[in-house]
Deep mutational scan, measured.
Amino acid sequence: TEYKLVVVGAGGVGKSALTIQLIQNHFVDEYDPTIEDSYRKQVVIDGETCLLDILDTAGQEEYSAMRDQYMRTGEGFLCVFAINNTKSFEDIHQYREQIKRVKDSDDVPMVLVGNKCDLAARTVESRQAQDLARSYGIPYIETSAKTRQGVEDAFYTLVREIRQH
């Protein structure tokens, strides 16, 4: 089974770092803004072998026109913010609204991801993020692309959301 996953969120929150940590098991430290990259990885989730087709997208506003296209083809979405960047957390709402509009559905598989949880300088409390996820009816997972904490959990949870859909 193949799953088309799309990673969305503001610029600099760590979308590529999360994806590369999942696929290649290493942490990319330097920031190089993405336009669009796709990665494929075969994994076993709950005993089922599946192929993850992951689209890593641009957070930069100037590429926002490309969003409709990949939102149409994606089956599930990782909505990523950084726990030390309140603005990126506030941006999640717009991504969710755009996904709902493009998919013409209120019920699209999504996982809210709070990345950079290895950093002490948190400005978005776990509780705020949990409340937001609960209001959307989606899971919330904290990750660190640096330490790998929660990385597999985030992507695998999204696959489970798609399966249950």
Rank of each mutant, 00 (worst) to 15 (best):
V28A: 06
N115H: 15
Y70L: 15
A82Q: 15
A65V: 14
A82Y: 02
E142H: 03
A17W: 02
E75S: 10
E61P: 13
T147E: 12
E36Y: 04
A10F: 11
V28L: 07
V111C: 05
H93E: 15
L158T: 02
V108I: 12
Y31E: 02
H165S: 12
R160D: 09
T57S: 11
E61A: 14
Y156N: 15
V28M: 09
G114S: 08
F81L: 11
A120W: 05
A10I: 07
R148Y: 14
V108K: 04
D53I: 02
D91W: 14
C50N: 06
E152D: 10
E75T: 12
G59P: 08
Y95G: 05
E90Y: 07
L51R: 04
R160S: 10
Y3E: 02
F155Q: 00
V43D: 10
A82T: 13
D29T: 06
G114C: 10
V44L: 10
R96W: 14
M66L: 12
R67P: 15
D53T: 02
Y31G: 00
A120V: 08
A82R: 08
R40Q: 04
D46H: 11
V102I: 13
M110R: 01
F27Q: 02
V124N: 09
I35F: 04
E30K: 02
G14S: 00
T147M: 08
G137V: 03
R122N: 13
T19H: 00
L55N: 10
V124Q: 10
Y63S: 13
T143Y: 02
V6D: 00
Q42I: 05
R160Y: 06
T73H: 12
R67Q: 14
T86C: 10
A58N: 13
M110L: 07
V124D: 13
Q24H: 04
Q94H: 14
K87E: 08
T123L: 09
L132D: 04
K100W: 05
S88R: 03
A154E: 01
I138E: 02
Q21K: 13
N84V: 07
R122W: 08
G137D: 09
A58S: 14
D53H: 03
E30V: 04
Q24W: 05
E161H: 09
H26V: 07
G150K: 07
Y95V: 15
R96L: 15
L78P: 01
V80H: 02
Q98W: 15
Y70Q: 08
M71F: 14
A120E: 13
Q98R: 14
Q24Y: 03
T123A: 12
D104P: 10
Q24F: 02
L55H: 05
G9I: 00
R127M: 07
R40L: 04
K87T: 11
Y31K: 00
V102E: 12
D107H: 13
Y140H: 03
Y63V: 13
V108D: 02
P33Q: 04
I20D: 01
L52Y: 09
G47I: 05
T157Y: 12
S16D: 01
V102T: 07
G114P: 01
Y31H: 06
S16P: 00
E125C: 07
L119D: 15
